[in-house]
């Protein structure tokens, strides 16, 4: 495929996404309001942590990691700012504002803006904290774990871009008896989160996490647009695999391929409905 064709496909992809986002918002506006928070994956212990933070007068610690609005993972920072907004709003009845940390200096204003929108109390400026990242974000992890001994949060919500340094933060949280929720756009971070965090989300759930906590229909509609794209992509890949198999195996007749495709589609629909 030459570059020009690839560019045309890219433009088409963006345009279709725009249409999908608007269409989802239009059609899912009413349905989304009925979604219950109880179905939220990875958030089973969040209400407990929130209650503990409010009762004990301890903060929650939220972290973007190295996700920054001036980097290639700007979308991760934008998505997690939305998640943090809903978490801070839920913690608003407490006395101590949550702490948001980042290793991207450009994200400091985003942290302060998120706290300003969701929290009404005083001293909000000091609740956004920047730590220099260093070459492998180890300096960030070291600074963070030292600071968290001072702040003594009830739990850590680590949602953003984390690599292996996540192990240091989660280990520190475990030793101090603090809860942890982790999700990362990096594969190493995701694996460590699965092994060490109390609650975990994987992969693209990073972008739909806010939809589970929000009562706004628009957030759920955006997540649905993402689901729809994923479904289309899976269907396309399945069709290509089946066509390839049909061409290579003599026993795989077209009727068998169509049967297999229908069976796969049926299983896919059932799994999607049961989520």
């Amino acid at each position: 495929m030459d570059d020009s064709t690839l560019h045309v496909y890219t433009i088409l992809f963006v345009m279709i996404t725009v249409v999908l986002v608007y269409t989802s918002r239009y059609f899912l506006a009413r349905r989304a309001r009925r979604l219950s928070q109880g179905r939220a994956p990875g958030f089973k212990r969040l209400s407990g942590w929130l209650g503990e933070a409010i009762e004990a007068g301890r903060p929650l610690h939220l972290s973007f990691g190295s996700a920054g609005i001036d980097r290639e993972n700007a979308a991760v920072a934008a998505a997690e700012a939305e998640l943090f907004y809903h978490i801070i709003k839920a913690a608003r009845s407490g006395d101590v504002a949550p702490v948001i940390s980042t290793s991207s200096s450009a994200t400091v204003p985003l942290c302060q803006d998120t706290i300003r929108r969701a929290w009404d109390g005083d001293d909000r400026r000091a609740r956004a904290q920047w730590f220099p990242g260093g070459s492998r974000s180890l300096a960030f992890a070291a600074g963070l774990t030292a600071t968290m001994q001072v702040e003594d949060p009830s739990a850590h919500i680590l949602a953003g871009s984390f690599g292996p340094e996540l192990a240091l933060i989660l280990d520190s949280a475990e030793r101090q008896g603090q809860g942890s929720f982790a999700v990362s756009d990096q594969l190493e971070g995701g694996a460590i989160a699965f092994a060490m965090a109390d609650e975990v989300l994987i992969g693209e759930q990073l972008f739909s996490a806010a939809a589970w906590l929000s009562h706004e229909s628009t957030a759920r509609a955006d997540a649905s647009a993402q689901d729809l794209w994923r479904g289309l992509l899976i269907a396309l890949m399945a069709i290509l695999v089946l066509i390839n198999v049909a061409g290579q195996l003599s026993i795989a007749s077209w009727s068998l391929v169509v049967g297999a495709a229908l069976a796969l589609a049926f299983i896919g629909i059932i799994l999607f409905r049961r989520r």
């Binding site: 979308a75 934008a78 995701g190 972008f207």
Partner: peptide, 27 residues
């Protein structure tokens, strides 16, 4: 598995990018 996760993240990035591009972000 790694490719599946990266594809999902790429799709999420596009949808979030479009939301920001359309001025629908909370900021």
């Amino acid at each position: 598995g790694a490719r599946a996760i990266l594809l999902g993240i790429a799709l999420g990035t596009v949808v979030t990018g479009v939301r920001v591009l359309l001025g629908q972000d909370r900021s």
